[in-house]
Computed example of a mutant assay.
Amino acid sequence: MVATIDGNIDTLAMNNISKSNKTNFSYKTLDDFVYFSIDSEELYVASICICSNDTISVYHSSAALGDALYKKLPEGNWQKNETFEWDMRETDTSNETVEKRIHFYQKNGWIANTMAMGKTGETEFIFNKSLFKNGKLTIALGLMYAHDPENILALPTTSKDGCGSLSLVSGSPEKSYKFDTDNWFSLTLE
Results as ranks from 00 to 15, higher is better:
161 D>W: 14
178 K>D: 02
138 T>M: 02
179 F>I: 02
177 Y>V: 04
148 D>N: 14
139 I>P: 12
171 G>R: 01
137 L>N: 09
138 T>H: 00
170 S>T: 04
160 K>M: 06
178 K>Q: 09
162 G>H: 09
149 P>K: 04
147 H>V: 14
172 S>W: 15
148 D>T: 07
138 T>W: 04
143 L>A: 00
164 G>K: 03
140 A>C: 06
160 K>I: 12
157 T>V: 11
141 L>S: 01
167 S>D: 12
144 M>A: 13
150 E>S: 15
163 C>H: 12
140 A>T: 01
154 A>F: 06
158 T>R: 15
167 S>Y: 08
142 G>C: 02
170 S>L: 10
153 L>T: 13
179 F>Y: 01
175 K>D: 13
165 S>M: 03
141 L>A: 01
151 N>L: 14
166 L>P: 14
140 A>Q: 04
144 M>Y: 12
165 S>Y: 03
157 T>L: 09
176 S>I: 04
178 K>T: 03
152 I>S: 11
180 D>K: 13
162 G>N: 05
178 K>G: 06
167 S>H: 13
167 S>C: 11
176 S>Q: 05
163 C>A: 15
173 P>V: 02
145 Y>Q: 08
143 L>N: 04
160 K>V: 14
143 L>D: 05
178 K>W: 04
162 G>M: 09
154 A>P: 05
172 S>P: 01
179 F>S: 04
180 D>Q: 07
167 S>A: 13
165 S>I: 00
161 D>H: 15
162 G>C: 02
180 D>C: 10
158 T>I: 12
152 I>K: 13
155 L>K: 08
145 Y>N: 12
142 G>W: 05
155 L>M: 08
162 G>I: 01
171 G>H: 00
146 A>W: 12
157 T>Y: 11
175 K>Q: 12
162 G>A: 01
137 L>A: 02
163 C>S: 14
178 K>P: 05
174 E>M: 11
151 N>M: 07
146 A>T: 14
171 G>M: 01
145 Y>G: 08
161 D>G: 15
